[in-house]
Design a protein around this nucleic acid. Structure first.
Length: 476
DNA sequence: CAGCAGGGGGCGC
DNA sequence: CGCCCCCTGCTGG
């Protein structure tokens, strides 16, 4: 790019794709790093999304370095939570008119952008637009849009998805004619804090002061969270009190943090300007505030992915999706696009411990074999696909994951530098015995692998294979 | 193209 | 845990 002129690479369907990936990740509970608990149900979601869609959450996470907090949404109904999550992830949500008021209320409490953003002075808005992370892309992201445009009642569910060129002034936000009660509540809320920041602060304060140990209210970890069909509760919700419980978790390793950072940058960069309303950032789910963090990952095994991984994969997704996106925008295949990467090139880079590891789309697309959750029989799953319940082991140094402890131990040696197997003929040392045996053959001259087509013999089977392919044109 | 090293998947004990 | 199998990457001729 230097002197040749600046090229502008634009990713068609980025918005839709991005949103879709996020939704997919949520459905699969992949890389979820925060769990919302409400009425006995648990909703594994992503901090990234919550933070993007709600300054409230953003602030909350900023102040709570917990790896996998659990936020108990007391006083919120599960259907509200589901709706808000749908809104945050997809950018749209269907809501019955009767439920609109309480939904908005909930959104207000959580400060979900677009749904409950506080009115702000113009300058405030200006500032926000300039802030990088929020990018100008979406008005929704900037807190000004107040929901309520009384005209269309079904606007909430409206399709701002595709083209949504919703008016800049009030993006998707609002189409619902909020109930009067809603208005009242709203105004009240605003009086408490003029600026969203301010409100956030207050909210945090509450979190810090109203800490109670009430944590988990319940039961099953993986409720069918995505249940649009679920009937809305007729009850009105007053989210006055939110109980919060916090437990500081250990910090993420440096590398992970940094990775995460890069992921965020990437996100802001891509969304910049272009995705005007990609729901990915603009509308994200919200959850109520409380945060009771549980033991990281102790709640749901399926949530053991680290955020960085999520970010990385999410970032990778787009690239991998190019192909199928082109095919008419059918995103039903979720990550099926990874097929194009073939099972051969094993995303090995993903597991490398490099501190400098960077998210390169093409490298990470493939979920690792072990935890392959590729949908639709993606060929990605080379072996048997494992049941989601199968326990995944994570390397503490990098993003490597495996289902086998032995593999993990072996892998960790690549980080620690431990090389238990030493050659008796030279100073060579290696991490695995098979590798040592292979090496020793170079001293002994043993060549166990004979070509069936010629006298050639090889020390390694793979070498023979290459030989046959190169010289005899076929496999043995 | 061949040799070699590093590293991951997965099975059997 | 040990081991086998496989693949990828790098290097040198």
């Amino acid at each position: 790019m230097g002197d040749g002129g600046l090229l502008s690479l634009s990713w068609n369907n980025h918005k839709a794709t991005f949103c879709h990936i996020l939704s997919t990740l949520r459905e699969k509970e992949r890389y979820t790093d925060v769990t919302l608990a409400c009425e006995g149900k648990f909703y594994p979601v992503h901090k990234l999304v919550l933070s993007t869609c709600s300054e409230y959450f953003e602030s909350m996470f900023e102040h709570t370095p917990c790896k996998h907090p659990i936020i108990v949404l007391k006083d919120l109904k599960s259907d509200e939570v589901e709706s808000l999550l749908s809104y945050m992830y997809a950018g749209v949500v269907n809501v019955a008119q009767n439920d609109l008021a309480r939904l908005i209320k909930a959104a207000e409490l959580l400060k979900v952008k677009g749904l409950a953003v506080p009115d702000e002075p113009p300058q405030e808005v200006e500032n926000r637009k300039n802030s990088p992370p929020r990018s100008s892309r979406d008005d929704r992201s900037s807190p000004h849009p107040k929901r309520r445009r009384r005209d269309d009642s079904d606007g909430v569910a409206g399709e701002q998805h595709g083209t949504n060129a919703s008016p800049p002034a009030s993006p998707r936000t609002s189409p619902y004619h909020a109930a009067s009660e809603f208005h009242q509540d709203n105004s009240r809320t605003h009086n408490e804090g003029h600026v969203s920041e301010h409100r956030t602060e207050k909210s945090i304060d509450r979190l810090e002061h109203d800490v109670r140990s009430d944590a988990k209210s319940t039961g099953d970890l993986n409720p069918d969270q995505h249940n649009p069909a679920k009937p809305c509760s007729p009850l009105q919700v007053m989210l006055e009190e939110t109980l919060v419980k916090e437990e500081i978790m250990d910090h993420l390793p440096e590398d992970k943090d940094s990775l995460m950072g890069s992921g965020m940058d990437y996100g802001s960069m891509t969304s910049d300007g272009r995705l005007e309303n990609s729901s990915s950032d603009g509308g994200t789910q919200e959850h109520q505030l409380l945060s009771a963090k549980y033991e990281q990952q102790s709640l749901a095994p399926s949530q053991t992915h680290h955020l960085p991984e999520a970010v990385v994969e999410a970032l990778a997704g787009p690239s991998g999706m190019q192909g199928w996106l082109g095919g008419g925008g059918d995103m039903s295949g979720t990550f099926s696009g990874v097929d194009s990467y073939g099972g051969d090139s094993r995303h090995q880079d993903l597991r490398q411990p490099l501190p400098t590891q960077q998210p390169q789309a093409h490298q990470m697309v493939g979920p690792d074999r072990g935890g392959c959750e590729a949908p639709e029989g993606s060929s990605l799953c080379m072996g048997k696909s494992l049941s989601p319940s199968r326990k995944m082991l994570h390397c503490t140094y990098c993003f490597y994951t495996t289902n086998f402890k032995a593999n993990l131990n072996r892998h960790i040696r690549t980080h620690t530098g431990e090389k238990p197997f030493s050659c008796t003929h030279c100073s060579y040392r290696t991490t695995t015995k098979p590798n040592l045996m292979t090496h020793i053959r170079t001293h002994t001259g043993e060549k166990p692998f004979a070509c069936t087509f010629c006298p050639y013999r090889a020390v390694q089977k793979v070498t023979l294979k290459h030989h046959i392919l190169a010289n005899h044109g076929r496999k043995q």
